[in-house]
Amino acid sequence: MDKLTKEEVLHVAHLARIKVEDSEIEKYQIELKQLLDDVDQIKDIVVESQELLVTPVEHETILRNDSDTREVEFNMIKKNVPATNGNFVEVPVMVNE
């Protein structure tokens, strides 16, 4: 059966920030390949116009006035935050910068 390579699965998993257990790799190699083969059919479809339909919305977009504002107290939001410290949201130390 056609499969993705192990590296391809790990690359896609990293893009999606989803850990894949070693035991699952084989399963994903097959399943992802099946889905990707499906969507590959799109390459064969001929379409004349190159216009893209991003959203079926046809109405005029009405924007927000700069002066319309509202705030929510952090105490409310905090209830769902996994880790806080004082008025801050806490996460493992960010590296990068």
Binding site: A13, H14, R17, I18, K19, I77, N80, V81, P82, A83, V89, V91, P92, V93, M94, V95
Partner: peptide, 18 residues
């Protein structure tokens, strides 16, 4: 980060995400 489930295996940012 902001709501919902956070894994207990979250020593680094990347681990937390994955």
């Amino acid at each position: 980060v902001k709501f919902g489930y956070r894994s207990s295996q979250s020593d680094s940012i990347e681990e937390m995400y994955a």
